[in-house]
Simulated scan of single mutants.
Amino acid sequence: MKKLIETFYTGLRDLDADKMVSCYHKDVVFEDPAFGKLEGDRAKNMWRMLCQNAKNFKVEFSEVEANDQSGSAHWEAWYTFSKTGRPVHNRIDAQFEFKNGQIIKHTDHFNLHRWASQAMGWKGQLLGGTGFFQKKMMQQTNQMLDKFIAN
């Protein structure tokens, strides 16, 4: 299963969404602070959208560990946040659960306040640690995803 995680992140590094989503079970559940919980095709389409829209994108992954049931990895992404043009360096810790040789559950953990401070400057510094900000962020990211899926 370690190879599965490495394939997933190699796909992300290469902005190859098809390679990434091939690692996901059809009933996958993805969750992170920016999108909240996404299931099945919504989770797969999130990666398609992110790969398609990436600007100045670079990713590195490390600390990949896995057994037959679960795994984990650390990954870091550098990119330009499209809304503000500001550079972001996000550090993420991922947890995985497997079913039938694929990822059935994928949870990314990162510091949303730190991310918001980079992506949005002083507004992110001021509001990025609040529940209000996270709720608003999830609304906006899911609206973008809805629009992407509709096209």
Rank of each mutant, 00 (worst) to 15 (best):
I104C: 15
N111W: 03
N90K: 02
N111S: 08
A116S: 14
A94I: 04
F110Q: 04
N90Y: 03
N90G: 06
Q102N: 08
H113W: 15
N100P: 01
Q102V: 00
K105F: 04
R114W: 00
R91E: 12
R114K: 07
F110L: 12
R91C: 07
Q95F: 12
Q118G: 10
K105A: 06
A94S: 15
H89R: 15
K99I: 06
H89K: 15
W115R: 01
A94T: 13
H89W: 08
H106C: 04
N90I: 04
A94H: 09
S117I: 00
R114C: 00
K105W: 07
H89T: 05
A94P: 05
H89D: 07
F96R: 11
S117A: 14
N111A: 07
R114M: 01
H106P: 07
D108V: 06
D108Q: 12
F110M: 09
K99A: 10
N111M: 02
T107E: 09
T107D: 01
K105G: 00
H109P: 06
G101F: 11
I103R: 06
Q102C: 08
L112S: 02
D108P: 15
E97W: 11
F96S: 03
A116T: 02
D93Q: 11
I103D: 08
N100G: 00
W115D: 05
E97L: 09
H89N: 15
W115K: 02
H113P: 12
Q102G: 06
H113K: 15
F96K: 10
N100C: 00
D108Y: 14
F98P: 05
A116P: 13
I104D: 12
L112A: 05
Q95N: 13
I104S: 15
Q118I: 02
N111I: 00
D93H: 15
F96M: 11
A94R: 05
T107P: 03
S117G: 13
K105N: 13
T107Q: 13
H109E: 12
D93T: 07
D108S: 06
A94E: 14
R91I: 10
T107G: 02
N100V: 00
W115I: 00
R114Q: 07
S117V: 02
D108M: 11
G101Y: 11
Q102Y: 01
K99G: 01
